[in-house]
Simulated assay, not measured.
Amino acid sequence: MNPTISESNLLGDRTVLTTAALKELNTRSTLKGLIRFTAHLLILGVSGYLWGTNFGHNWAIAVPALVIYGYSLAAMFAPLHECSHRTAFENNTLNDFVCWFAGVLSFYNGAFYRRYHKWHHRYVQNLEKDPELSDPMPKNLGEYLWMISGLPWWWSKLTTHIRVALGQVEDYPYISEEARAEVIRSTRLQLAVYGVAILVSIAVQKPWFVMYWLFPLFVAQPILRGYLFAEHTGCSHDDNPLTNTRSVMTLFPMQFIMWNMPFHAEHHMYPSIPFHQLPAAHEQIKQHLAHVDSGYIKVNLDIATKLV
C-alpha cells in the first residue's frame, strides 16, 4: 500500500492521507505566498500598462492585454480564497489584509466571503445549506449562458454589498452576531474605496475607474464564471469529498493565476493544505477522486451539452 495512504481510504472518507503525510503537506510558507502574490500583481501591472498604452492605437496588443488584465483582476478571487482559509501566509494578519485587498480588486468582500466560504465547506453540495447553491442552477442553455455572462453575479454582488453596508445582515446565517460589526465595517470601507476612485476619475476628467477596473473586470468575468461553475456542477450532492468536487487538469497559466485551485477536490478534502502543496497532494490521492477532468472548456461544453 502507498505509505502516504491510510487503510481508511477504502471507506471513501476524509482520511485518505495518513497523519504524517497531511502534516507534511500542511506547511504554510509566507515566502511562497509573497512570491505568488507579487507575480500576480506583476501580471496585473504589465497587462494593465499594455492595455492602457495601446488602447485606441494598437488593438492587436490592446485586446489580448485587456483579456489578461481583466482576468488578472477577476482572478484576485484566488488569493482572496486562499487567504480566507489563512493558508497563503504564516501570519494571519497578512492573510486577512491580502484577503480584503484582493476582494476590493475582484469585487468580493474578504470579511464576508470568509464566513460565507466556511459554510460552503461545511455544507458543500447540500441543497438546503450550501450558500453557493442559493442561486438556482440553469435548467437550459439560455439560463446557462445568462449565468456565464456574469450579469447575475454583478447584480448579486452589488445588492449584497449595499445591504451589508446598510447593516442588513440578518438574512446571512453564516454571519454570526459577533462578526457582524467587522463585516459591515469592512464592506463600508470597500465601497468607500470605490467611491474615492470614482471621484478621482471625475476630478481629473479621466475614465480611469471604468477603463482600469469596471470594464476589464466585466470583460473577464465570464471566464471566472466558467471556472467556478466547473468546481461542483455534475458532482454528487452528498458529504463525500471524493465525489462531490471536481479537479481540472488545466494549462499552466490558468493553474498559476488561480493559485492551484483547479486542484479543487484535493482542497475540499483537506482545506488546511496551502496552495503550493496542492499539486503534491493531487499526486498522492488522484486515484481516489471521482471527477478529474481535462480543461475548463471541455467541462463547460459537457455541462452545456446536457442542457440543450
Rank of each mutant, 00 (worst) to 15 (best):
M1N: 11
T4L: 06
T4F: 09
E7P: 04
S8D: 15
N9C: 13
L10Y: 08
L11A: 10
R14N: 14
T15F: 06
T19V: 04
K23L: 10
N26D: 15
T27Q: 15
T27Y: 05
L31I: 10
G33K: 12
L42A: 15
W51N: 13
G52E: 09
N54T: 09
N58L: 15
P64C: 01
L66R: 07
L66V: 00
Y69T: 01
L73T: 00
A75R: 01
T87R: 07
T93M: 14
N95I: 00
D96K: 14
W100F: 10
A102H: 06
G103S: 08
V104D: 03
N109C: 09
A111G: 14
A111I: 04
F112R: 13
Y116L: 09
H121A: 11
E132V: 02
L133G: 05
D135A: 04
E143T: 00
L158C: 02
L158S: 10
V169S: 10
V169K: 05
E170H: 12
E170C: 02
Y172W: 08
S176T: 15
E182G: 13
R188D: 01
R188F: 00
A192G: 11
G195I: 02
V196E: 06
I198V: 07
L199K: 06
V200Q: 09
S201I: 01
A203N: 04
F209S: 03
F209K: 01
M211E: 14
W213N: 11
L217E: 12
A220Y: 01
E231G: 02
G234T: 02
C235S: 11
C235I: 01
T243R: 15
N244V: 05
S247M: 09
F252E: 13
F252K: 15
Q255P: 04
M258N: 14
W259D: 04
M261C: 02
H264A: 00
A265S: 13
S272M: 13
Q277N: 12
I285H: 11
Q287V: 04
V292S: 11
S294M: 13
K298L: 14
V299A: 11
V299L: 11
D302T: 12
